[in-house]
Design a protein around this nucleic acid. Sequence first.
DNA 1: ATGTCGCTTGTAAAGCGA
Length: 289
Amino acid sequence: MRLATWNVNSVKARLPRLLDWLAETEPDILCLQETKCAAAAFPAAEVGKLGYAAAAHGDGRWNGVAILSKVGLDDVTLSFPGEPGFAEPGFAEPGEDGPPGLATLDEDGERGPLAELGAVCPEARAIGATCGGLRVWSLYAPNGRTVDSPHYAYKLAWFAALRDALAAETAAPLVACGDYNVAPTDADVWDPALFVGSTHVTPAERKALADLRALGLHDVVPTPMKGPHPFTYWDYRAGMFHQNKGMRIDLVYAGADVTARVRSAYVDREARKGKGPSDHAPIVVDLHP
DNA sequence: ATGTCGCTTGTAAAGCGA
C-alpha cells in the first residue's frame, strides 16, 4: 500500500504534472492540498482515467483539499466537527475577509469566547475518507501570517478543534496527512535564527503538534533525497530550492497501527524540479500489507 | 529570502495570499 500527500498549489495549474506523477509513482492513496479548485470543477475524469476515485472539498479560490484513491473511497467527510472558519467573531473584524455579513462581533461589540463559536463558515481545509481500511485525512492548516494577526489565533483554534475531532477517531487505523504549516523542530527550517519571531516555529504551534502526537499519532519523518533535512517546501523566490533553503511543514501523522506498518517514507524532491513545479514536494509512504 | 507563483477582477495591471 502506497500513501502520499502533496500540496500541489492549484490542481488546475498542476494537472499535467499531477497526472504524470500519478502514472509514475502509482500511489494507492493521495492527499492533495491547496487545490484552489471548486469541488465541482475538480478534474475527477482525468484522474479517473488513471484508476482513481476522487473526493474534493473546495470553494474554487483559495485552500481546497482532496483525496484520490484506488482502494476505495467511503464515508467522505468535508470539514471536521467543530472546525472554525476565519469569518467568525473572534477572528475577523466586520468587513475584513470572508463573506460580508458573516464576520460580525457580538451585539455588544465584544468578541465572543472561542468556545461559544459555531462553525459559521469553515474554509476548505479538511477532507476525510476511508480508503483501503485506513481512515485518511487530507489537511491544510491555516498559515497564520504573523503572530499578532487574527489569522494566527485562528490557526491555533483550528488545531485545537482538529485535535478534538481526531481524538474521536483514534479507534480506527488513522493517518492525518497534509500541509500543517508548522515546522516541528528547529532542524525543520533551513536557518532557525531567521525564524525567530515568525509563525510556523512558535512554541504554541509546536505544542499544537505535540497535542496531536499525545493522541497516539506518530510523526512519520520521510527520508530526504538530498541533504540531512527532509524539507518538503521551498519558496519559489530567490533560488531557495536550488540552495536547499526549505522547511518541513508537510507531515504524515499516523496512528500506532499504521505506524507499525510503515516500510519506508521519502520526500519526492524530483517533483519540485523542472518547469512549473508546486512549491511543495510530495511525501510518499509505503506500508506493509 | 522578500527575488515567484497562482488566483482574482471593471479581460490589463494590480492586489492578495503564500
